[in-house]
Amino acid sequence: MAADVSDPLAVAALFEAADRAFGGVDVVVHAAARMRLSPLADFNLEDLDRMLRINVLGTCIVNQQAARRVRPGGAIVNLSSSVIGRVLPGYTGYAASKAAVEAMTFILAHELRGRDVTVNAIAPGPTATEMFLDGKSPEQIEFFAKAAPLERLGTPEDIAKAVAFLAGPDGHWINGQTLRANGGVN
């Protein structure tokens, strides 16, 4: 089932469908995102608004439903970005939206005190996804690949393994944290 994460009714319907199909919700992984790059002085405010609606408002809406429905022993995992810790001209709006995700993650973990539900974030580094590769030249891709000591882009599988760790029993003592799954990019 698909849903626009910026639409509260659509997200509620998605969670209701999961409840019906599976008898409840144990893990929520919120990965929906939009990336628009531009120097802040030139940022098209309509593009910025669309990005913030997905990245920030969408995280609020999904996490609100998750906070209401995830059963004890469960996990909420949001996706942030390692760009927050880097100086990358043109990434101001995107980095700000992902910093909001990390703030929500940390605070929600504390709001769910006593519920036995963990809330964490994964902050991928440059990862070979359609969103990351879109519009980048081979030189830009090489720049990002060489930024990590492992000298490669991450793969979706790299990130999925980190998510699985935080969502599974081995990661259940980790709570309110952001795991920078980025190959060592600083």
Rank of each mutant, 00 (worst) to 15 (best):
T92S: 12
L153D: 14
K161H: 07
R53H: 11
G154I: 03
T178G: 10
Y91G: 01
A12H: 14
L48I: 00
G125R: 03
D26T: 00
N63H: 07
L79A: 07
P126E: 07
S80L: 03
P124M: 06
R152H: 07
R53A: 15
V83E: 11
R34I: 04
G154K: 04
L48N: 01
D158K: 01
A96Y: 00
H30S: 15
A32E: 07
A21C: 01
Q64T: 12
F43A: 15
G171T: 03
H172M: 10
E46K: 12
R152W: 00
A147H: 01
G183W: 06
L150F: 12
R180S: 04
I174S: 03
G176A: 08
I61K: 04
I107K: 06
F106C: 06
H30Y: 09
P89C: 06
I122F: 11
Q65K: 09
D4L: 12
A145P: 02
M131N: 14
E151K: 15
N55Y: 08
G114V: 11
L57Q: 13
G90T: 02
N55M: 03
P156H: 10
K161C: 02
N78M: 10
I159W: 10
I84N: 02
P89I: 07
A32W: 03
D158T: 01
V11P: 00
R68G: 05
V27N: 09
G125N: 04
G85K: 05
D4Q: 13
E157H: 05
L45S: 12
H172Y: 08
E139D: 15
A109R: 11
A12I: 01
W173L: 14
R152F: 04
P8D: 14
V70Q: 12
A100M: 05
A160R: 06
S6I: 03
R34T: 07
R113L: 14
A103E: 04
L48Q: 10
K98F: 06
D49V: 02
L88G: 03
R20V: 06
Y94I: 02
A99Y: 02
L57S: 10
V29L: 12
V119Y: 05
I61L: 14
T155S: 15
T155G: 11
A121W: 03
W173K: 08
A18D: 00
Q177Y: 09
V77H: 11
A164N: 01
A160M: 07
V117K: 00
A95Q: 01
D158Y: 02
G58H: 07
Q140W: 09
R86K: 13
A96L: 07
